Amino acid sequence: MESIILRALVVYILVFIILRMAGKRTLGEMTAFDLVLLLIISEAVQNALVDDDKSITGSFLVVLTLVFADVMVSLATNKFRFLDSVVNGIPLIILENGKPLQDRMDKARLQEDDILEAARKTQGLENMDQIKYAVLEKDGSISIIPFHLNENGIKPDIIKEP
């Protein structure tokens, strides 16, 4: 039985690392391809989890171990801020003052269309010039902070530092 628990922990850690390397957007907004990939991964690791043990007890131990590991990671990330940033990442500004930060977008595998889609859905904005900041959040979603218009409905000038 202890080998089932050990295998479950090893698989949990390996799959976690692989999915973390895949990036925030993969987990934040799954496409049909991502779902198929996740299903294939789950099928591929099944034998590593239970081996020849097809008993209810073995399956229960695997499920219990995986849930326990997940709860422990959650508690640890809540207690240790550094660990949270390693495990869950940090919010990343991907657009500032209407200008995409291309190096950050490339790293996150985002396109300008992704930002515009989030701007339309959440703020009803139509173009990049209306966005003060776009932030790729830890969960993979994109938050949009629009420019605030002055009383005449005009966007204030962007202040540039020397």
Rank of each mutant, 00 (worst) to 15 (best):
F16A: 14
F16H: 11
I18Y: 08
R20S: 13
R20K: 10
R20D: 09
R20F: 00
M21D: 05
M21G: 12
G23W: 11
G23E: 04
G23C: 03
K24D: 07
K24I: 02
L27T: 01
G28A: 09
G28Y: 08
G28K: 01
M30C: 11
T31E: 06
T31H: 00
A32V: 00
A32S: 07
A32I: 04
A32Q: 11
F33T: 06
L35V: 04
L35K: 06
V36C: 03
V36K: 07
L37I: 09
L38Y: 04
L39W: 05
L39N: 12
I41E: 15
I41P: 13
S42V: 13
E43M: 11
E43T: 12
A44N: 12
A44V: 10
Q46I: 10
N47W: 00
N47L: 03
N47Q: 00
A48Y: 06
A48R: 03
L49S: 01
L49G: 02
L49V: 05
D51V: 00
D52F: 05
D52C: 11
D53P: 03
S55Q: 01
I56E: 07
G58D: 01
F60P: 01
L61E: 09
V62Q: 09
V62D: 13
V63R: 14
L64T: 15
L66I: 14
L66V: 15
V67I: 15
V67A: 11
V67T: 08
A69N: 08
A69H: 13
D70F: 11
V71N: 11
M72V: 08
